[in-house]
Design a protein around this nucleic acid. Structure first.
Ligand SMILES: [Mn+2]
Ligand SMILES: [Mn+2]
Ligand SMILES: [Zn+2]
Ligand SMILES: [Zn+2]
Lengths: 144, 144
DNA sequence: TATTAATTAATAAATATTATCAATTAGAAA
DNA sequence: TTTCTAATTGATAATATTTATTAATTAATA
C-alpha cells in the first residue's frame, strides 16, 4: 500500500469514528505508519517536532492513546505500566485481560512444540518464547 | 514442591551466585513463590510490610531486579519501561532482544495456525494472540 | 462565515523507577 | 565466638514516564 493510500485510509477511519483529522494527528500517524521499530511516544515526538515545532508532548501521548483505542494502531504490550514478576520458571504462556491486566498462566506442552523459524536462530541467540493470548476476562465482560 | 523445598532451593541458588540470604530477600521470595498473580513491586511490598514493617520499597525493587538478573524469577514483560506502538494491524509476532529491547516483526502464517486451547475460549472473550521470541540480537551479542 | 464541540499547548500532578549514601549486617576469616 | 569487610538495606532524592487540568485554538458542520 502506498503512503498516500495509508494516509487516506487513516483519514477515513478517523471520519468513521468521529475523530477530527488535525495536522498534529496526521503528523503523528505519518511518523508511525512506515516505522517498524515499535517506537515509544518520546521517539515519535522527537521525530516530528522538527517539522512541527509547536507540538506538545502530551498531544503525542493523547493521540497515540486515541489511535489505539479506535484500532488505528496497536500497543506492542498491554502490560507496560509496571513491571510484573513471575516465580514460574518452566516454559508457559499467558492469558492477559486487555481490560484489567490480569495475567493467567497456561501450561500447555503442545504449545511449547511450535517450530522456531530459522530466521530467528540464524540471526540471534535464541533464549525462549512465550505466547500471549489477549482476552477480555469473564469478570470484565460481566462488568460491561 | 513443598514451600520448604522452594525456600531451600532459593537459598541454594543465592549461595551459588554469591548473594546473601537476607531476611528481606527471603520475605520477598516467599511472598512471590506461591503467587500466580504476576504481582508488581508495589503489591509485593504491601503484602510483606505487615510482617516486615521496616522494609523499604527500594529494597523490594532492588531484590526483585537482582533475582531476575540471576534467573531466580522472571519478568512477565521485558518491555515495561515505556509503551511502544505498532502500525501493523495484521497478525504477526515479535522477536525481542532482552538487552537492547529492539522489537522485530515476524510475519509467519504457520505460526498463526496454532490451536487455541478451549480453556481460553470457554472462559474468556478471545481477542488475538502473539508470540514473543526472546533473543539476544547479533549487535548485542557482538558487544558482549 | 458563524457556531460549537473537539482538540491542542502548556504545565502541573501523579505514578513508577533508579540513584545516592550513611548505617547496618551476612558471611567469611580468625 | 568474635572480628572484619564487602554486600545490603533504609531513607530519601532524583529521574523518567504518564495522566490530568484548563484556557486558547481549531476542525467540522450548518
Ligand atoms: Mn506466568
Ligand atoms: Mn510489530
Ligand atoms: Zn479482566
Ligand atoms: Zn539487542
Amino acid at each position: 500500500m502506498s503512503d498516500q493510500e495509508k494516509i487516506n485510509q487513516f483519514m477515513q477511519k478517523c471520519r468513521d469514528k468521529g475523530l477530527s483529522v488535525t495536522p498534529q494527528r496526521l503528523s503523528i500517524f505519518k511518523a508511525l505508519m512506515n516505522d517498524s521499530s515499535h517506537p515509544n511516544p518520546e521517539t515519535i515526538y522527537k521525530g516530528i517536532k522538527e517539522e512541527n515545532p509547536t507540538i506538545s508532548f502530551a498531544t503525542v501521548y493523547k493521540a497515540l492513546e486515541t489511535f489505539e483505542k479506535h484500532g488505528i494502531i496497536k500497543m506492542v504490550t498491554s502490560l507496560h505500566n509496571t513491571v510484573r514478576y513471575d516465580p514460574m520458571l518452566q516454559q508457559h504462556h499467558h492469558i492477559v485481560c486487555a481490560k484489567c491486566k490480569k495475567v493467567i498462566d497456561l501450561v500447555d506442552e503442545d504449545l511449547n512444540q511450535i517450530k522456531i523459524p530459522e530466521s530467528i536462530t540464524k540471526e540471534n541467540q535464541f533464549l525462549d518464547f512465550s505466547i500471549q493470548f489477549n482476552v477480555i476476562c469473564s469478570e470484565c465482560r460481566a462488568r460491561q
